[in-house]
Design a protein around this nucleic acid. Structure first.
Lengths: 211, 211
DNA sequence: GTATGTGAATTTCTTCACAGCA
DNA sequence: TGCTGTGAAGAAATTCACATAC
């Protein structure tokens, strides 16, 4: 019913999963899919799928299901993935290099537009077709690029200052791989990928206390 | 009150964050900390911190706070991090290499015990002091090692079969970096790090619909 | 008959607010 | 006075179950 107002984050996360499944199915030539089958592929349940999709308005056909291709496009649009986003990647260590080679970025409509590092050894080198630039140029480079997303792949100690530099350069969303909590203005959206957290959860589950 | 029964996953995730903050504070020589200050560092709130810590039993001192070092150790024990875990890393592409160099593993008590790949070009090479072994040896190698955690850093197409091989080798927890949903027995604990999901959430938040 | 969309019920998670202890 | 631990209240997310549409 709330056709396009706020969608809760857990739902958005699942919508991203559905999008991936739908791409696969479309590439397999599937025409329609039921909430049940989509749920199975994405590791959810049919009621959840229908609830999630209801945030986009009425879009399925009772007795039939959803049009795979149409639903895919509708989802991509709702998630803001349709137009594509430019990304600034800061930190060209081993993780940064791995990220710059990751094809998932392109597949989802993200383009890495520039690489930054402050190691003189790395500046000027080319990684994945892009020249590594000094961190000091972040702001000036992005005056032209107008990238909206920054990815932080630097050591923990530098993460906060890099984050602030990204915000100063006009970035509105940040994906942070450094294991620190960033303190940033409210209006900046931050997602943290923290191996420490993931490993701790696995470890806890192995103790047997988690059922 | 539930001194050591099941701790919900959102709580476990935050406990991991507190643990990191406590390590910092201990290294800074801090003796005690209040729920308020811990909350501030970890990006939570004081009531949440107290509720979370209450899962470990009574452990603080009213009017004073918590003993930094004691709480750190108590947390590490509760999360099962105290004894350390051996980890099998499968996939020595750029991401796998980055992971094998990541010092966060060691810091949390995880030891990468073996590397696997099925690319003949990579087998036999040394990465971070470990020889890359063929995937086929997974089971036999782990008969001795008895590692309980597997990390999957292979392309999406191979992730499911690698996951099954890891389970067959006796692994009980899996950290999956491939953008696919793994179908595994109930008793195996899986955490997925999915860039696609993270980017989609950022993208959605940039649309302005998310407040 | 089959599968959607959605209010209602349920479960889970978070925040409040305060009694009790140092 | 200062801060913990925790029941109670509140908010959020998930699941149920069914009216409705094909």
């Amino acid at each position: 019913m709330p056709v396009s107002s706020h969608i809760p984050t857990p739902t958005v996360e699942r919508l991203a999963a559905y999008l991936g499944c739908l791409r696969e199915m479309r590439d397999e030539g599937r025409q329609t899919v039921s909430s049940q089958e989509l749920a199975q592929r994405a590791g959810s349940n049919s009621a959840q799928v229908r609830k999630d999709l209801s945030h986009l308005g009425q879009i399925g056909t009772p007795g039939v299901g959803y049009q795979v291709s149409a639903l895919h496009d509708r989802l991509a649009r709702a998630l803001g993935l349709a137009e594509g986003h430019k990304v600034l990647l800061v930190g060209v260590g081993s993780l940064g290099r791995a990220l710059s080679l990751y094809r998932g970025f392109r597949q989802e409509g993200f383009t890495i537009a520039a690489l930054f590092d402050n190691d003189p050894q790395k500046i000027g080198k080319r990684v994945g077709g892009l020249e590594v630039r000094p961190l000091a140029e972040l702001q000036s480079v992005n005056r032209d690029l107008r990238a909206s997303i920054g990815v932080i792949a630097v050591p923990a100690e530098q993460a906060q200052s890099v984050a602030e530099a990204l915000v100063a350069a006009g970035v509105k969303g940040i994906l942070n791989f450094a294991p620190v909590r960033l303190r940033l203005p409210e209006h900046i959206s931050v997602r943290a990928v923290d191996l420490t957290r993931e490993l701790a959860v696995l470890s806890y589950n192995l103790t047997g206390a988690g059922r």
